[in-house]
Design a protein around this nucleic acid. Structure first.
Lengths: 246, 246
DNA sequence: GCAAAAGTGTTAAAGCTACACCCATGT
DNA sequence: ACATGGGTGTAGCTTTAACACTTTTGC
């Protein structure tokens, strides 16, 4: 219940039936506005390991796969146990199974997830007295040396995030129900790491047919900006035949 | 050694350490020219199951993950044991782990692979007296009902193949070292299931910088066609930070 | 009024698509 | 010679990118 570290290892050997320990971990992304920052940066929560191997080092949140539990369910569960939150988007990333990635043999099924910024900051604090003092948010661009092969895993997850933002609508997973085009553009800019032309961005996203304009406006500074909503008919991310499975 | 079926199940329960049986299977694609066919079609080898569950049904080639074996190595090994061949391309597809996908709990790490056509046809025959009479090639467009969730897995692999042919150079995995532009175009046409304009195709692929023209020509019919070679500097498929790993 | 973000317009460059056309070879 | 695939040219359309410009608010 309070197990927060991934790739936790037990010295007990695997039995004679070739069964293997399976860990399920998740790379959780959100956007965070740094103190003096212009645009938000990609941030992710890490868990400090409380036992060997790699005791004291930061690692991806996760846990062991239960016998009667699907992979997606295991990802959701372990993610909730560490951050106390349900992600707005969750997708399998990759299965890592090199024999030397851990002292004992562990295959890690890694997921990646998105969490909406406002909720993310309140979420970790909210969960209070649990083992959550071992959870901390890091800027994805400047991570410390992580346990196991988790640095490489995060790099791959970032690559996937950046790719996917180009051809799917996952940006929605980092926004509230309604948002301005500037806020949507800011998400893209943070992930891609470069500025986008507001005029061209507006036209591209308007022509994509994913956005539904509302009659509401975001006020408070300068000219009010129209609020948009995502068209729910369209899938969040294109995973092909896998979209409604497992 | 002669184990050719994937998702083979033993009734022995998993031990108390939460370890799980891991199967590694591969969707192997090649192109095959049907008797009266204009363009080749995508074909894949399946293995007939020799025991329960799903005895007699066709299934993906694979086997159990060995304790001291990486995932990629397990895919290569089980693939070789069934088809007797080394693939020209091999990439992890997805990890399937729904609890009800098999009578006993099995997590399958599924790979997909490409094999060059000439070798593929000679290969299966070559391996002779092994258990290979239980291997048969099928047209990917008209598969029978397969064991477990293997129909869905093949669908997903096909989707990935069709996507990837658009933004990477995996078509090379289905061709010999040297090839004409018509042969390369035929690969694309087979995978995408539609004809491509020869003129436009030529310009696109020439401008991509992936092809190196040779001074050799394929003769034997009509005007000789120049042979091309792939530029080895460029990676076969773009898997990001994972390209040289695991 | 002025600054700044929202939103519209315009134009040049690049890419894609369709299709006409010439070239070189086997039969 | 002629059929056929190899290879080139080109015109029209769509998409992308850069940037000028107008609109509407807060201060």
């Amino acid at each position: 219940m309070t197990r927060t570290a991934v790739d936790d290892h037990v010295s007990a050997a695997v039995d004679a039936t070739n069964a293997t320990r399976i860990a399920v971990s998740t790379v959780i992304f959100t956007l965070r506005r740094l103190p003096g920052g212009d645009t938000p940066v990609v941030a992710l929560p890490l868990v400090r390991r409380t036992r060997d191997p790699h005791e004291g080092q930061w690692s991806l949140p996760g846990g062991w796969l239960d016998v009667a539990e699907g992979l997606d369910a295991a990802a959701s569960r372990t993610l909730a146990e560490t951050t106390g939150l349900a992600p707005s988007y969750l997708e399998q990333l990759y299965a890592f199974g090199a024999v030397d990635r851990s002292p004992t043999r562990v295959v890690s099924i890694v997921y990646w997830a998105l969490i909406r910024p406002e909720i993310a900051s309140s979420g970790v604090g909210r969960s209070g007295a649990d083992a959550l003092e071992n959870v901390q948010w890091f800027d994805a661009a400047s991570l410390p040396r992580l346990a196991f092969d988790h640095n490489e895993i995060v790099e791959y997850a970032l690559w996937r995030l950046r790719n996917k933002v180009g051809y799917s609508r996952i940006a929605h997973g980092l926004l509230a129900d309604m948002f301005t085009l500037a806020e949507l553009r800011e998400v893209y800019e943070s992930i891609l790491g470069r500025r986008l032309d507001p005029a061209n961005f507006r036209r591209q996203v308007e022509n994509s047919g994913n956005l539904i304009p509302t009659e509401l406006f975001r006020t408070g500074s300068h000219r009010p900006a129209r609020l948009y909503r995502y068209n729910q008919d369209v899938e969040l991310a294109d995973r092909g035949p896998l979209d409604a499975r497992d």
